[in-house]
Amino acid sequence: MSVPIPSRRALSAALIAAALALPVQLMAHGDVAPQPMNTEALPDVGEDWLTENPYRAEAAGDEVWLTAVKIGDSGYNQNCARCHGLGAVSGGLAPDLRFLEAEEYGDEWYIERFRHGYTQDGVTKMPGFEEVLDQKAAWAIRTYVETRPEDGALDDHTARLTEIRDQLAAGDGDTTAIAAELTQIAGNVATASGAPKADSTVSRAAEILALAPDNRKGASELLTIGLSAAH
């Protein structure tokens, strides 16, 4: 008898529900003070809280999207990683936010938790951030999280990325051509959330070479990090 494969929505809901059922002491945030985020580079989104991410590339453009990812990266790792895991990869003690769908359904769940937190049996498992971080910060973090690559996203490209990494480390190759190839590979990296664009070490290495073609070392080091994380 075949077993039906759950939809992405059902899977993400199940993972989040299971994590929320963990013992309180495992998920408590403790006394870590929220860290401020500089969101001046992002366009304003108004005073009323939105229910859909305004910084996705298809709505705001690639430049705004990339800015939101970078600001969200810093904000997430300062304010959220302690419980939800570095790079949004949960260790199992809190919901793995990478699987929260990159559509309005997932946005509504996210922004509700961001603003008001989560309490169970009178105990706060997650504090609300509405009073300490603004809406632009909230959606920047959301943008970063939803662009995390899925597990194994680089597996099909490991051999070629290793060759490129070694070529860059040796100071060889046409960096313009290498940047173009890395951009092409980055476009095929799938996200865990279903978002159409992933922010990965591959895309960031391509960006480094596009902005500073002589920075082979920086691009090589980023690829090394990505390849190490893939194993």
Rank of each mutant, 00 (worst) to 15 (best):
152 G>S: 11
203 S>Q: 09
206 A>N: 08
148 R>N: 04
193 S>C: 07
185 I>V: 08
186 A>L: 04
190 A>L: 07
151 D>R: 15
147 T>V: 04
151 D>C: 06
207 E>D: 13
206 A>L: 13
149 P>G: 11
163 E>K: 07
205 A>T: 09
172 D>I: 01
150 E>G: 15
199 D>S: 14
183 T>M: 00
177 A>H: 02
192 A>P: 07
208 I>V: 15
183 T>H: 05
149 P>W: 11
156 D>K: 15
159 A>F: 10
163 E>D: 14
199 D>K: 04
163 E>T: 13
205 A>Q: 08
201 T>F: 15
187 G>C: 01
170 A>T: 06
157 H>K: 13
177 A>S: 10
158 T>W: 10
169 A>Q: 11
198 A>M: 03
185 I>D: 00
207 E>P: 05
196 P>W: 01
197 K>V: 10
179 A>T: 08
176 T>K: 12
207 E>V: 13
150 E>R: 15
194 G>D: 04
173 G>N: 08
153 A>G: 11
164 I>Q: 03
188 N>R: 10
152 G>K: 13
164 I>P: 02
165 R>G: 02
163 E>H: 06
202 V>N: 05
187 G>H: 04
203 S>H: 11
164 I>C: 03
147 T>R: 12
191 T>P: 10
190 A>H: 07
207 E>H: 14
191 T>F: 03
146 E>L: 10
172 D>E: 15
147 T>G: 12
196 P>G: 09
197 K>Q: 09
150 E>Y: 06
179 A>Y: 06
197 K>E: 05
155 D>T: 15
181 E>V: 00
208 I>Y: 12
167 Q>L: 11
203 S>C: 13
157 H>P: 03
157 H>L: 08
173 G>F: 03
165 R>F: 03
184 Q>R: 14
160 R>D: 11
176 T>H: 10
202 V>C: 04
167 Q>E: 15
152 G>W: 12
208 I>M: 13
